[in-house]
Design a protein around this nucleic acid. Structure first.
Lengths: 249, 249
DNA sequence: CCGGTTTCTGCGTTTTTGTGCAGGAATTTA
DNA sequence: TAAATTCCTGCACAAAAACGCAGAAACCGG
């Protein structure tokens, strides 16, 4: 069998099934694994397949277009993300809400981190999926198109079954009187459930949102364990929160 | 034997078998390998064949190689998508699996369609989410990074609770003996559940996948109500399926 | 018919290409 | 952490290609 012919066959298989194992290929066409590996390598260099350990993947399937740009206050959110990540250890169960700050965190997770992330936020899930070592649990239910997150009783029931180590909430508004607040009733229900299911509750908020409030309360300040903003922990704006017993990072 | 005559013969062979080995040719026409090689070279320069190490390939062989848009067989899949969409009416509950064919269908849904779509496939969900009038139910559980779909007992249990009107399966392999088959155990479990929960089962498969099979069976042919390919319904390849009682579109 | 030229073909040698194998490194899995 | 795959590197060997060359056939104008 000719080399080109073989490669065409491989490419065909990959496109048909979206993936292919080198072991099965070398039985199929009866050549050594080395030959297959070299073929896959060439095809990968030409950009026709994606080579992975043990085989190859179709290019088309793996390219999920994700809108990574144009995030509001991206720099601040990156700072917040870094602080948040320092709270995550290997083996942890992590609950996260949606929101661009969470998204930024998801993108910044170190590749060697092994943990389990649970979320109903589609954009966040997309990011977690790209991570090599993270197990992803998706919370199902009806999808709210506005917030791109699953909402509803099913979702809440599922979250309540979880016993997570830590929970990260992208926070829309936080102040001393009202605690954390939001403007979407369904999302509020969800976040409440998330807080109940976690040992530790972490709020991520850019400084702009500190000392603002929204119509619906998620929880009082006392329920929050840690508050993360892009400001240094000793910033005067944050002083009252620290005094209220919240650990400020 | 004249040179022209020889080249005509070679060209004929190439077009007939899509490939040709210089070694077999030189036994065939009883000339030295050099002569054959020179002939092939000329034919290649004229663009009539593609010369490779050890022989030559027909041009058609190589043309199918890589569609620039990224999705393999996109045109066929668009055709399939159109046929599939004709089965969906307003108000229906629709279950869908994952796969690029389903994705193509999701992209082609008419904007005025009002229906409820249920799926665990992340790429499909992304498409449904962009649709103005569709309610989207996401099936939750652990995410399989390979197939970008939720798998596991929770997902299966949720699907079994559903009573969908119709179920669209992206099909990896279908043949008369084995029915529909696949190579990912978890995905198979999921598809089984989907079939059980639906009034009507529709298989979407490009013609290439018809009359092929994979290691694990999803269901026997009898369980399928409708089969959609890009071919016209009366294509001889599909005749046996129609005779087996499947409605072929 | 005849030199001279061009084209075609085959042969021997040198290069290049393709393939498999052995070992050790790296990565995955139990 | 240990065992098992899989991957990579260098190597050897075989097949094929490239190259130069020479003999043979065809072609051609006188």
């Amino acid at each position: 069998m000719l080399k080109k012919e073989r490669q065409a066959y491989i490419l065909h298989q990959v496109n048909l099934h979206n993936k292919v194992l080198s072991s099965s290929l070398c039985i199929d066409i009866n050549v050594s694994e080395d030959t297959i590996r070299r073929d896959l390598q060439e095809l990968a260099e030409e950009g026709k397949v994606i080579k992975v350990h043990g085989g190859a993947l179709s290019h088309s399937f793996n390219e999920v277009h994700f809108p990574s740009n144009g995030v509001y206050s991206q720099h601040q959110k990156k700072t917040i993300a870094q602080k948040a990540i320092s709270l995550i250890d290997n083996g942890m169960f992590v609950l996260t809400s949606g929101g661009t700050t969470i998204l930024e965190m998801a993108r910044s997770l170190p590749p060697q981190l092994k943990a389990t992330f649970i979320s109903g936020s589609i954009p966040a899930i997309l990011e977690y999926m790209h991570h090599p070592n993270i197990d992803v649990i998706l919370v199902g239910d009806r999808i709210s198109k506005n917030s791109k997150i699953t909402v509803g009783t099913e979702a809440i029931a599922k979250i309540k079954q979880v016993r997570a180590d830590i929970c990260f909430l992208g926070t829309n508004a936080i102040d001393l009187h009202h605690g954390i607040t939001d403007n979407d009733w369904e999302v509020v229900q969800l976040k409440k459930a998330m807080m109940e299911s976690s040992q530790k509750v972490v709020c991520l908020a850019i400084a702009e949102k500190v000392n603002t409030f929204q119509p619906i309360q998620i929880a009082a300040l006392e329920k929050i364990d840690i508050l993360i903003t892009e400001l240094p922990p000793d910033d005067p704006v944050l002083r009252p929160y620290a005094e209220a017993g919240i650990k400020v990072l």
